[in-house]
Amino acid sequence: MGSVALPRSTSASGIARSPARVPIDKPVRHHGTVHIIESRCKECEFCVVFCPEKMLEISDRYTSRGYRPARVKAGKEGDCIACRFCEDVCPEYAIYVVEDQP
């Protein structure tokens, strides 16, 4: 009749039990590492302005093309939530995120 067998574990006493529930009130927090390809960066500040964690800034030195590349703020290295918005919004393909394995 189309009933679906739910996965059930069996205890030592032989009584079927539901599997352990995953708490829904505990959000999984992703972490990532930001990588910046400085030779491509044109200092447009998209990543700096649109980063939800505000963890990027414009550095104080210049590349050979005369732009100041973006960099991660000192002390904010662990703040990346791996949302990858900087990667998607960067018009120069100069920033990307590698998600840390939990």
């Binding site: 990588h35 390809i37 030779s39 960099r71």
Partner: peptide, 10 residues
């Protein structure tokens, strides 16, 4: 350089 979160292709 990747320890600081940035790498430079240059």
């Amino acid at each position: 350089a990747s320890a600081g979160g940035t790498i430079s292709a240059e």
